[in-house]
Simulated assay, not measured.
Amino acid sequence: MRRRLTSDEAELWSTVARSITPMHNRHLQLPDPVEPTTPEPQPVKQPAQSRIPAFRLGEKAAPAPAAPPSDPLRMDARTHQKMTRGKLAPEARIDLHGMTLAEAHPELIRFILNAQSDGLRLVLVITGKGKGVADPVPRPIGALRHQVPHWLRLPPLALSVQQVAEAHLKHGGSGAFYVYLRRR
């Protein structure tokens, strides 16, 4: 359904239509201005509904829905529990401290693929926690710590890696990752 012009719009259109001349097709007939009509009533806008449910003072809040895990468990629950509690010892480790992202990525790929071909299941990737640098250019703190989990989910490592989890405190805590490899 086409919208009708208001009286102000129709008056403006007729003024513009009288003042123009066609550039190419001089014998082109311009449409007659539309007669003003009574404007159609605009629908009344309803106020936006709040995403917060209504409540009364003193009422207990409903429990929040559980958030889905960021990395779904793809390995045996008992083994995962032992791994996150630090009960499993990593079979190999790589320390990426002091490396740039460009140096660390190929080293990580080489390490993971060699570890899987050697039949290892649990390896430790030490990234460090990172430290803030007083630079005028903002950079993420701990660039390796943020980038390594992404690299492990991308090819060619995604086919080799079964599970990634933050290491136990005795193996480096938040500055290291357990990488559980698939069987060859």
Rank of each mutant, 00 (worst) to 15 (best):
Q116E: 14
Q29C: 08
L159W: 13
L96C: 06
E107W: 09
D95M: 07
A134C: 00
A67E: 15
R93D: 15
P65W: 05
S117I: 01
I94Y: 14
H150C: 07
E40F: 09
P33M: 09
A62D: 13
P33I: 11
D71E: 15
L157C: 00
E166Y: 07
R121E: 14
E40H: 09
G128M: 10
T100C: 02
A115I: 04
T37A: 14
R121V: 04
E103C: 03
L120Q: 13
M75D: 12
E59R: 01
E166C: 06
P90A: 12
K87N: 09
Q42V: 12
A143K: 06
H80K: 05
L57T: 10
D135L: 11
Q116N: 00
W151L: 04
A92R: 11
W151C: 00
P33K: 06
L120K: 04
I52F: 06
R85P: 03
R93K: 12
L122C: 07
A104Q: 04
H150Q: 09
L159M: 12
L152I: 03
Q163A: 06
H105S: 09
S160L: 06
A62R: 12
R93N: 06
H80S: 12
I52M: 00
P47H: 08
L144H: 04
T37F: 10
V125G: 05
L57W: 05
V125M: 06
A115P: 03
G86Q: 09
S117F: 04
P47I: 06
L96Y: 05
P140K: 03
E40T: 08
L113I: 11
Q162V: 07
L113F: 08
P47F: 02
A67M: 11
P106F: 08
L73T: 04
A102V: 11
M75P: 01
L157M: 14
M83N: 00
A54P: 02
P90L: 11
F111R: 05
T100F: 00
P68W: 10
A77W: 00
I112M: 01
T100Y: 02
E103Y: 03
Q46I: 04
P106L: 12
Q116G: 05
Q116K: 10
L28R: 10
V161Q: 09
A134T: 13
R56H: 09
R78C: 01
R145S: 02
L124M: 11
A64R: 08
A143D: 14
T38D: 15
A62E: 15
P155I: 05
